[in-house]
Nucleic acid binder design. Sequence first.
DNA 1: TATTGTTATACTCTATAACTATA
DNA 2: TATAGTTATAGAGTATAACAATA
Lengths: 163, 163
Amino acid sequence: MANDIYYSKTQDFLRPGSSGTAYGEDLQNIAADLRIIIGRLSRRLRSERQHSELSLSQISALFSLERLGPISPTALSKIERVKPPSMTKIVASLLENDLAQKTHHESDGRQFLIEITPNGQDILNKDRREKEAWLAKALSSLTATDISDITKALRALESLVEM
Amino acid sequence: MANDIYYSKTQDFLRPGSSGTAYGEDLQNIAADLRIIIGRLSRRLRSERQHSELSLSQISALFSLERLGPISPTALSKIERVKPPSMTKIVASLLENDLAQKTHHESDGRQFLIEITPNGQDILNKDRREKEAWLAKALSSLTATDISDITKALRALESLVEM
DNA sequence: TATTGTTATACTCTATAACTATA
DNA sequence: TATAGTTATAGAGTATAACAATA
């Protein structure tokens, strides 16, 4: 079975010779590993969310609306790292489902602001509880050290996104 | 500007009240943060790789071929977390571009094995050097502690993929 | 019957190009 | 002219369903 092959190699982790001294790895190698991990985790997350009512992009946008408050689609597109036409679609889906609502910009007639609705907040909370259960469960089977390592890395990873 | 809004909130990181004591967070919250981060990093990576000759899926598969040696498409699809028809396409693109080659299975006429070619190895190395430069550069502008945190978390994240 | 891999088809997400409306 | 947002269209990546070949 595939996983047997895989696990028999975990001593070498992703690249031959990449494990062992974490601090001795150069940035290029860390970058290579990180990139592969992100790709796989992303596909893993997608497969778990297949039957969710909200796509990961929608959840992520809603998440930002919750955190940032009213914001323009263009500003949100920059934060979410998608182009404006993509954000148009994401926003449209949020509006259609009463997860977000528009408010007019005071001075600029071109712009409008989007904000999360109470329903959107409910759905976000529900989605967190239900759809992330598998990830929380997966995390719970790691060692306390692993969980701690991941938690500490989250902020560093977030800052990478912004570069 | 969007990022100004964003950064003005980083004290609270992703969720209000989620930062501070890393160890006090419950798994549900860590899962929520991790999921959002993975999604954004994944989109960030995609935008950087837009003009690469290889997709992230292709690179990831090639990476596995390098690490695991000859393997069947079905086994590889399990490792890469895609369905067999998707792997058929990924493998076809690798074969077309002389990045991988087929070898026959000794006993099972249905199966064949795929392995990386010398050309595939060259391309993989070249891609690592050139296309990951931005990520290595981004990493280099983090603090040593952040880099260390990320490095330590990689193995824990990898084990999550396998669950 | 079960498994390996392929073909046909469709869906989701995202992008680029061209456009409208306002500043 | 420049900016905010939309529409039209296309491409990449993935999935499901149905199939062929072999075990």
